[in-house]
Write a protein that binds this DNA or RNA. Structure first.
Lengths: 298, 298
DNA sequence: AGTCAAATTTGTCTAGGACATAATCATGAG
DNA sequence: CTCATGATTATGTCCTAGACAAATTTGACT
């Protein structure tokens, strides 16, 4: 957790929690929380303990709770909510918990080796759908409950990245079809989803061009043109505000030539209520394979 | 460039340019630029052309110019400034320009192959210092002059990442010394510098733990403890505000045990005026090898 | 030319109000 | 009882105009 006696100004809190300055101020006005002390210039200084609470609140909002219900709750109350949250827990296979144990023990090297073993035992499609995907969810839930720290989650991401990149490097198809451009919109900085999509698509014989994260919309359009892409594939996590996802997809769809398909996947789009016209939403990785087959047929 | 007739609200402009909302408003008040139109609610709507100018202005500020000199300049004036900027151009080897041509031609696959050839011809240390480093600078300058677009720069980063990660995977030393923890502070999202450092350190026999980008300070401390790190190595690019670098290094140095060394490198730290106590600044990658030797001796 | 203080520049913070849109609630129809 | 439709509440983002500390530049004086 944060240093106990430290105080943070509003800019630092915004960066650390991902909650905007305006939002922090308006919560204070409306809900009476957070309740920062003030320095000699009447500027807000947030105690570390409140920053910790804000982090937990952010997690609850990301999984769909509403501010009026969670902003201002005490640490124990927040933890109670977080612990009862994952009711939809499917039966995780015991093997997955071994990976989690490796994460908690900070055995990065051993984790990578174990993941690689699973990859070559199961094959890439099963590895992604039966190991990585549920493991991501399991890790996400454990992180939600505070059982896994941020740095442990970073370590985990790094090992997955390492394993997937090695796999992709060896199955890349520079002459495949369709041509797919992979990236995320500004604001979405997670690349794991992209890597999983690239692996799946490459295996389906598609030709992938990875642009990395946070490509401005205008640049995506240019890149699609330059690479004569048939498909632009975007990935969204829960950390991306639903409104930004919606308007971003709208703008991009409008700016992109009609013959270029726009695919969106990840936990962030599962949240979207009404689908956008001309945007294909993919719930699971397996949908990708299916969508490629459909595209080839039709 | 941005869609010609499009209008963007202040939040989008902040995300696209990296200039904060407060700063955009105060520039308008002080310098009369940007001069957005207003919608029916008196909310700012920035024309695409002004967003383009703001992007160029941001680049000039990142290389050390002052707002009073550049905010409000017209597109031709900005381009004139950008073109005269890189006076310190060293004599680039002709081979480097071939890489640049591949980038401009969007030949991602060919670029990766060419880079790999150079890697195995030169060896890793020379590849990093004589190819990648100057190429980064060359690409950075070309980008500054608008000769390389954002998406092309993304494509370039992706290929470098791919080549370096493959190299690192094959020289990783899980039992080496010293133990180094690699990451960036919140706000710094570029990981190329980290990868180059990891490659150099691994080759020196160090044991690297890569945490990826944007690890909160408190988490870095915990990770250093968990991995019994001897060194925490941070990377900073020009896109990181100097003030954030300074205060971040101060905070981290204070929170880290004294016996853990703190190393900082990248173009962002070259800008820092006064070095922080207890922080080692590394100007070039070769300094890393040297610093490791020194550490082993002393 | 170097050093120190004064002046200027610059980013970030403040308050309190406003509004569009999303989410929830309530009502009525089938 | 279920579904749709309209009213109400909740919520994030934007607004103005002022303030101040820290960084940088300027200017005076060795």
């Amino acid at each position: 957790m944060s240093q106990e006696n430290s105080l943070f100004n509003i800019g630092v809190v915004e960066r650390e929690t991902g909650i905007g300055k305006d939002t922090l101020r308006v919560w204070e006005r409306r809900y009476g929380f957070p309740a920062p002390v003030r320095d000699q210039n009447e500027e807000r200084l947030y105690p570390g303990e409140q920053v910790d609470r804000l982090r937990l609140i952010k997690r609850l909002l990301d999984i769909g709770m509403r501010p009026v219900k969670v902003v201002g709750l005490s640490l124990p109350e927040l933890n109670a909510l977080l612990n009862e949250a994952p009711k939809n827990a499917p039966g995780y296979s015991p093997e997955l918990f071994e990976f989690v144990e490796l994460i908690k023990a900070h055995q990065g090297g051993a984790l990578r080796i174990a993941l690689n073993l699973a990859l070559f035992r199961q094959g890439l499609p099963d590895f992604l759908s039966k190991t990585i995907s549920p493991l991501n969810q399991l890790v996400g839930e454990a992180w939600l409950r505070g059982e896994i720290r941020v740095f442990e989650e970073h370590l985990y991401s790094e090992q997955i990245t390492s394993v997937l990149r090695a796999a992709i490097a060896s199955i890349r198809n520079p002459a495949g079809t369709p041509r797919v451009l992979l990236t995320t919109l500004p604001g979405e900085e997670h690349s794991l989803g992209l890597l999983m999509a690239e692996a799946t698509l490459s295996l389906s014989g598609a030709q992938c061009t990875m642009l990395g994260v946070q490509t401005p919309i205008g640049e995506i359009v240019l890149a699609a043109q330059a690479h004569q892409a048939d498909i632009v594939a975007l990935s969204f996590t829960l950390s991306m505000p639903p409104l930004q996802i919606k308007s971003g997809l709208q703008q991009l769809r409008q700016a992109l030539p009609r013959h270029v398909a726009l695919w969106a996947g990840g936990s962030g789009v599962a949240r979207q209520r009404k689908p956008e016209d001309g945007v294909q939403y993919l719930g699971a990785l397996s949908d990708l394979t299916e969508a490629v087959s459909l595209l080839r047929q039709g």
